[in-house]
Design a protein around this nucleic acid. Structure first.
Lengths: 205, 205
DNA sequence: TTATACCTAACGTTCGTTCGTTAGTCAATA
DNA sequence: TATTGACTAACGAACGAACGTTAGGTATAA
């Protein structure tokens, strides 16, 4: 007994297409072709085209915004930081490289990111999500990390909001670069390593 | 005797619409309405829709890529740096804030930037332009600035590529934030000031 | 039997584009 | 000076194709 998952396949294919072409420029026919059904059959699963977008926003985008590593992490929680005490620059570089690899290659995350990038100027709700997901949450996470590293005595005391911005923004920019030109991932990984090492050097206590 | 400039008005309105909706999602009727003519009249000035996009890319986008402040500036040219010797952190902050204001509000630049952001995943030529214009050129400019500041003895010696990335990336990220939420410009200006001050503090010789 | 998932066919609308026409400008010609 | 003809920029009307959507039928499985 095979449970049908056409609905999920539609959402998957839709996110795929929206992430490259955007919502308006993606047609129902294109989407149906990608799934392998007739376009009329889409209406057995969704009320209309807008409903598909709404469902993606509701389930995929918002789901990620609330459950990403940047939201779940809590640098004030001893349980979270217990294996992070005494982290050296190289350890943080490795940690960040690992997170970067994940963020770049997880299909759900990378498609969500691209789609938000494309739709941010037309859809106020998605603009808000983009700011929250790829700016505020990231900044908060690294502010927590900076406070932790200052508390530990690894880094010197300074404005943690600025520190977090200086630490995370190059990575954000390089993520965007990799989204455009995936071939440059190795180059970016090396830049990230250098960036983290140099950051620890200049902020050393 | 009034010389008609309908062709320029079409390009202007097209860039306006493409920067928000993207190329595919902008219709010829929309564009004609924006200009105030019938859609058939557009074909007195352009062969087809693609021709409008090509003309914008050729004249507006590429023109900006080659003549932006980030390309024209040459930190090895004494003529360019003669009024920049002895720059303190506050001076650089003011300089950067001025450049930021210009980049945010110049209609040609800001529309180009938004359009490239929207179209980067569908059009390889525009992806290339986006990387060149909003990454490589910016990075090169600030690498020149870093070399200059090191040469002058203002900043300590370090990898200038990483320094430039750490200096410019927060600004790039904040530009994107302002494109989404223009109301946050004042907040961003203050962040830029703090960022530049703190950058000079930690890289002080 | 009822419900579901898919289908074909068709709907009215909008898409980008073409056509032929018209009004206005300008230079050359009568 | 007045007339002609070429050129331009705008127009209304229409084109076939594609758009999102609906209606109705059919097969499968609970």
């Amino acid at each position: 007994m095979e449970k049908s998952n056409t609905r999920e396949e539609i959402l998957e294919a839709a996110l795929d297409l929206f992430a490259v072409n955007g919502y308006e420029a993606t047609s129902i026919s294109q989407l149906a072709d990608a799934v392998g059904i007739r376009k009329a059959s889409l209406y057995s699963h969704f009320a209309n085209k807008q409903d598909i977008l709404d469902t993606i926003v509701e389930t995929v985008l918002k789901g990620y915004a609330d459950h990403s590593i940047f939201v779940r992490a809590n640098w004030d929680d001893p349980e979270f930081t217990k294996d992070k005490t005494g982290m050296k620059a190289e350890d943080v570089a490795k940690l960040v490289q690992g997170q970067l690899r994940y963020i770049l290659h997880d299909p759900r995350i990378s498609r969500s990111r691209k789609m938000l990038t494309i739709e941010q100027f037309r859809n106020a709700e998605l603009a808000e999500l983009q700011t929250k997901q790829n700016y505020e949450n990231v900044l908060n996470y690294f502010m927590g990390m900076m406070r932790f590293l200052i508390r530990e005595g690894t880094l010197r005391n300074a404005d943690t909001e600025i520190m977090a911005a200086q630490f995370s923004s190059p990575i954000t920019v390089w993520i965007n670069l990799c989204d455009r030109e995936p071939d440059r991932e190795d180059e970016v990984m090396e830049l990230v390593r250098k960036h983290v090492m140099q950051f620890f050097e200049i902020y050393r206590k």
